[in-house]
Design a protein around this nucleic acid. Structure first.
Lengths: 199, 199
DNA sequence: ACAGCCATGTAAGTCGTTACATGATTGC
DNA sequence: GCAATCATGTAACGACTTACATGGCTGT
């Protein structure tokens, strides 16, 4: 049940609507967790029922309203408990690697295409995460500014450092995937050359 | 729906029972996909209904029976189709990284404990994958021997090479996590030293 | 006899995806 | 007026987890 904690962690920075929360891990670049709004709205209602957050209806223009949620003390306590808790390792499940295991079922051209797509995707991700690390270090995002405002000056360095470290990790992961795809392409070249010799 | 394809890929090596299939990605070391038997048995029945595999009841001792499944021609065709298909990138969802983003909610000791657990786990994984790469390259697993038996000599190199490449990738990933955890520990040291200076 | 492995199942519940649906606000 | 964005929801389905359950076989 990490969706709750991801939501609470965002709400710790500042109160927000479900829509805004959804943007943070849906369309937006900067999050290690993803969830669609169809999962978020019901979860927010359950969290409010559990007392972890509290919602307030606010006006939007003339007729419209929106519900803004804020983290409660119980929510803050739960966040602290969760951070101290052991983190279970997720079971391995990777479609790209699973498929790569069996590239012999397809052509060399296919293996090349797949590795190339993997390469392109993760190269893009790498740049995205690297850019985000810089933004964080410059305290250059709205969310970071709001978050820091709630803490004493002396805590700021650690708050920034942990987040930067996570996204540096994401970039390192992406780099590893890029390298894997590159040596995959080299492998296909070697295999195809070897297959050609017998002909 | 990758579970199907993982099962079919294993059954391409040799016919097997649900129990044996479950061992391959449950308890056993060597698989990039995981599934419990409670998911496997119903899926096998559905796959048989769809004509991708065919099951045969066999005797076990006096009273017992077991059902052995074999890949059908339709299954082989579907495997080829799947390998050629584009591979969607999974949405990011990582509990360890999510939590690390918010280590400021806990103590330095906790951050250290978390990073240390991450380090230990992935170091172990790394060795596991590296050992598996060697086994594969020596064609030293039962499954690999069975798999190769179904293909002409000329195809053997590629079959081994793709699998070794995948598990080298798994090892590289684990190495990346180990490095991340190590620099995380160094980060905690620096942050704690900096916090100590103000006291 | 007993332990450990082989073998197969069900059922409840949670989590996540995809699609369908609606309406207000803001800026051009 | 229209498009883009803000805002919130439902519903069906599929994937996965966890727990409960049963019984035969093999070796000591």
């Amino acid at each position: 049940m990490s969706l709750r904690h991801a939501l609470m962690a965002l709400l710790d920075a500042t109160p927000m609507t479900g829509y805004t929360l959804a943007k943070h891990f849906d369309q937006s670049a900067a999050f290690v967790w993803h969830a669609p709004h169809s999962q978020i709205y019901p979860e927010l209602r359950r969290m409010e029922a559990d007392g972890l957050i509290s919602g307030r209806d606010e006006l939007r223009g003339a007729r419209g309203t929106k519900r803004t949620y804020a983290l409660t003390e119980a929510g803050r306590t739960e966040l602290r408990r969760w951070v101290e808790e052991a983190t279970p390792a997720p079971p391995g499940r990777d479609g790209a690697y699973l498929k790569a295991t069996y590239y012999e079922f397809g052509s060399f051209a296919n293996a090349r295409r797949q590795f190339q797509a993997h390469l392109t995707y993760h190269q893009q991700q790498q740049h995205r995460w690297e850019a985000h690390v810089k933004e964080l270090q410059n305290r250059d995002t709205e969310l970071m500014r709001l978050r820091l405002a709630g803490w004493p000056e002396s805590a700021h360095e650690a708050i920034v450092a942990y987040k930067a470290h996570v996204y540096r990790g994401m970039a390192a992961r992406a780099r590893t995937e890029v390298e894997w795809a590159k040596s995959g392409l080299a492998l296909v070249d070697r295999l195809e050359a070897a297959a050609g010799e017998d002909t």
